[in-house]
């Protein structure tokens, strides 16, 4: 996937994932996905639970749980992250490649002061004195708008609210010089009123630093308001991708269309869907997806040919891809080019 800002932004993608496979035991949970994250772009990775989106993120970070391993490649700054050893990975992790986790309640060490937790990242990656690291940590906590940052430096995580903790986790992610911030459902565990603040904070900080953002979520509205591009994941595959606005207005994969139809209203003023639609059936368990097109057992357009592996095809300017034998809005698009499965 290439963004429409590529012309202005000449550097290559900050991350290029190719044929990423993550297997749980003998069952692949991520089935050979490929995508680029262009420098400075905010990309949403959308999917229901069980679609493999978190595993994708963890394999890029090299933080897969014990017993799981990833194959394929994830190229960052010329290095394949999947083949680096722990020490090489640690150079990159926390500095150029950072992550914001879903559960702010458990993501912070309960017995360590938050100031120390933030300062620790700085001292790992920068040759900073204790005092310098502390100053920098304070500045970061101020940047993430942690109220009373100076006194909170000495607080323990349990003394903070969920939203405040997530601000600290974001500060951790910004402590280095991140080229890419991966945020895995960063607001799911938070109160609705706090969610928007945290998302806006993430977006603004990524924009200020010219960092790319990979935002993992199941919430279409979040993607619509934060991300320029979107990747739609289902059953361990990326079934559609493109600029957010374009994909949401003209979904080409029946699953994407179903997702969008299931949301009451994406943007004010759009009243095309009088009734709330649902996708029939439910997400199969791991290893229970059908062969061929993973969505065919729930798809109203499915035919016999869907039993075969669908090709991923792109439109002419290669801004959008879809992996479907019966894509919607076919006539609206230009020539279809095959880009491989």
């Amino acid at each position: 996937m290439t963004g429409d800002q590529e012309v202005e932004n000449n550097s290559g993608p900050v991350l290029r994932v190719q044929d990423l496979v993550v297997a749980v035991g003998s069952t692949p949970a991520v089935k050979g996905i490929s995508f680029d994250i262009p420098s400075g772009r905010r990309v949403g990775l959308i999917g229901e639970s069980g679609s493999g989106k978190t595993l994708t993120a963890l394999s890029i970070m090299g933080l897969l749980p014990d017993g799981l391993s990833a194959t394929g490649s994830a190229i960052h700054a010329g290095k394949n992250l999947l083949t680096l050893n722990e020490n090489e990975l640690c150079e990159i992790r926390g500095d150029y490649l950072t992550m914001v986790f879903q559960e702010p309640m458990t993501a912070l060490n309960p017995v360590m002061r938050i100031g120390d937790q933030v300062a620790e990242v700085i001292r790992i990656h920068r040759d900073a004195s204790r005092a310098e690291a502390k100053d920098r940590a304070l500045a970061l906590l101020k940047q993430v708008h942690l109220p009373n940052a100076a006194s909170r430096m000495r607080a323990y995580p349990h003394q903070l609210s969920g939203g405040q903790r997530q601000r600290v986790v974001i500060a951790l992610a910004l402590a280095g010089d991140p080229a890419l911030i991966i945020a895995d459902e960063p607001t799911t565990a938070l109160d609705v009123t706090v969610q928007a603040q945290i998302l806006v904070l993430l977006r603004d900080l990524a924009r200020q630093r010219n960092s790319s953002l990979l935002l993992i979520t199941h919430d279409l509205a979040v993607v619509a308001s934060i991300c320029q591009d979107v990747l739609v994941m289902y059953g361990g595959r990326i079934i559609e991708s493109g600029p957010t606005r374009d994909v949401f207005d003209h979904p080409r994969h029946p699953y994407t269309a179903g997702l969008i139809a299931a949301v009451p209203e994406i943007e004010a003023g759009q009243e095309r869907r009088p009734r709330l639609a649902t996708i029939p059936g439910s997400v199969p368990g791991l290893g229970q997806f059908p062969s061929g097109c993973v969505f065919r057992n729930r798809c109203q357009y499915a035919t016999e040919i869907c039993g075969e592996e669908p090709q991923t095809v792109a439109n002419q300017d290669r801004t959008r891809t879809v992996s479907c034998f019966h894509p919607l809005h076919d006539s609206a698009e230009g020539t279809i080019i095959e880009v491989g499965s």
Partner: peptide
């Protein structure tokens, strides 16, 4: 996991 994401081995 957070600590490792920060760059600790």
């Amino acid at each position: 996991r957070t600590a490792r994401a920060k760059g600790l081995t």
